[in-house]
Every structure is written in C-alpha cells, then in structure tokens.
Design a protein around this nucleic acid. Structure first.
Length: 283
DNA sequence: AGGAGCGCCTGCAGGC
DNA sequence: TGCCTGCAGGCGCTCC
C-alpha cells in the first residue's frame, strides 16, 4: 500500500481538481470498506465544496464547507484516480465503472475521482473539522517525519529503553507517522543499522542519523511520484518510479549496492512482514 | 505495558 | 488449464 510518499503523491494529483471545487454527486457502491461508511455519507458530501485537501501520515483529509472533514485511507491496494477534464471541456473520457470502484466523486467541473480498492483495507470517515485531531485514527499518531517536531532529540528519546527491534519501532505509527515496510527498510540500509537490533541499544549518534536518512528517502520518493509495485498509481493513473531506486526492498539474493561489498541482500520475516537488509553493511 | 501474531480481503505468481 | 500455496505497500484487536 501506499506509504507516506504515495499518499502525498496522490494528494498532489487530486488537489488541482478537488480543492476549491464542489462535489455535485457522490456514488457509494457498497456499504463499507474495512469498516462501514459513515452514516449518510453521500448526502453529507453532495453539494459540499472542498476547501482544502491535506495529508496526515497516510490519511488524506478533505476539509468541507459544511464544517466536516472527509478522511480517506488507501489501505494496501487503494487508488484514487482522476478522469475527465478539470475545466469541464471534455467529459466523455471517463472509463466505465470497473470492479472494485467503491466510491466515485463527480465534481461540478466535470472531473471525476474514482476510489478503487480491491482488498478493501481502506477506509473513509467524516468528522468535525474543528476536532479532527481527536479522531481515533489520528489521535494516536506520532509526529510527521517531514515536520519540525521530528528531530534527532525526539527520536533518541522515543527509542530510549525500547526493547523492540528498530524495524518495528520505526513501523510504529505512534513513534513516527507515515513510514511503512519499504521506507523503513531503505532508511535502515542507508544508516547501516541492522533491522534486528533493539531500538534502545543503538547509540544516540546512530539513532540521530536515521532522522536525515528518513527525510531524504521520503523526499526523494515523493519527487519520483512514489513507488509502484503492483497496485499503486498516481492520481493521473501514471506509475511512480521510486521502486527503481530501492537499495534493499524486494532485492533478496541480489548484490548489495554498497561499493566494495560482495554480500547479497537477505530477507527475514519480522513480526510477520518481510525485512530486506544487507547483513554485512547493516550492524 | 508493550510486543508478537492474527485476521481482514482480493489478486497474482509460481509450483505441480 | 487449473488448483494450491504463499505473498503483498496497513492496521486494529487479542493474547501473552
């Protein structure tokens, strides 16, 4: 699924056709995704103007002129793609409804945004904008990795005494919000830190090195339009291309990219998820 | 208290 | 061709 860079890529693609625009009609084609949709979702969205499209962690948040905020999560396989001309000049290029097109937003401009999610691990909800931070999915989140609150001192303190592997600690959305399996693996490789090492046992200097490494890998991934494995598409349907820049993710058995290293990338399962790393470079 | 494991779903690739 | 198994970018819940 989309991790932070993929969600940010989608947000940037949707913003030009959604921000400031009115939803003329919203089709809701099933009662639920991971959870039931909020009560009367289509009615509460219809006719509303989207004032702003924000991102918090892996959640998209659309603030409406009704004082409510629409929360969208893409789960593992969710996509939001735009069809139709944003200026409403050509509205005949909308594809037919496809399997797993669960929600379709018809904008007044003629643009159409389709939410498609085969695995249905995604979610949507509506909440009061004023208290959005207190939503149960958002209130548990740690700082944004690209924000000022996330710095060396913060991460050192967060890891202190932690008996869990650093891989799990970085996947913990309460420590830092928005990282997933791919970018955790990549950030640990860049810092030469073994994913198996206990978070609390890593020197402060090495923990500190994770902060710029995480920022750098996320920023580069956003600049590349995210990573496309099987499912991910940008809002315009294009593939992201950061997957070509992976050092470790999905590279089991392939040579390590570190100059002079003759080892190959290993895969290990940690709490049920694949971890990719170089046993020589990551200690 | 905090961490590991399971389940939610569908689709795809690979082995036979 | 088809069946079976394993695997997938997330995350909340239960159990220990």
């Amino acid at each position: 699924m989309p991790e932070l860079p993929e969600v940010e890529t989608v947000r940037r693609g949707l913003a030009p056709v959604m921000e400031g625009q009115v939803m003329a009609k919203v089709e809701v084609n099933r009662p639920d995704l991971r959870w039931p949709f909020p009560e009367r979702m289509a009615e509460r969205l219809t006719g509303r103007r989207i004032l702003q499209l924000r991102r918090r962690s892996k959640y998209l948040l659309g603030d409406l002129d009704s004082g409510e905020t629409l929360l969208v999560h893409l789960g593992m396989s969710g996509r939001m793609t735009v069809s139709g001309d944003p200026l409403g000049r050509f509205v005949h290029d909308h594809p037919a409804v496809q399997k797993h097109d669960h929600v379709v937003f018809h904008m007044e401009s003629g643009a159409r945004i389709t939410f498609n999610d085969p695995r249905r691990f995604g979610a949507m909800d509506l909440m009061q904008t004023a208290t959005a931070d207190q939503h149960k999915l958002l209130s548990v989140l740690g700082p944004e990795p690209l924000g000022n609150e996330f710095d060396e001192a913060y991460l050192i303190a967060a890891f202190r005494g932690k008996n869990t592997p650093v891989k799990s600690a970085l996947l913990d959305q309460g420590i830092v919000a928005g990282l997933g399996n791919i970018y955790v693996c990549e950030a640990l490789f860049r810092c030469g830190i073994s994913p198996l090492r206990k978070a609390g046992q890593i020197s402060a200097a090495r923990v500190a090195s994770l902060v710029p490494a995480i920022r750098d890998v996320l920023e580069r991934a956003i600049a590349a339009g995210g990573s496309s494995l099987k499912d991910f598409r940008q809002a315009d349907g294009e593939l992201g291309y950061f997957q070509h820049s992976f050092d470790v993710y999905g590279r089991e058995g392939e040579p390590c990219h570190t100059p002079g290293c003759n080892d190959t990338i290993n895969r290990k399962v940690q709490s049920g998820r694949s971890t990719f790393y170089c046993p020589s470079c990551q200690r």
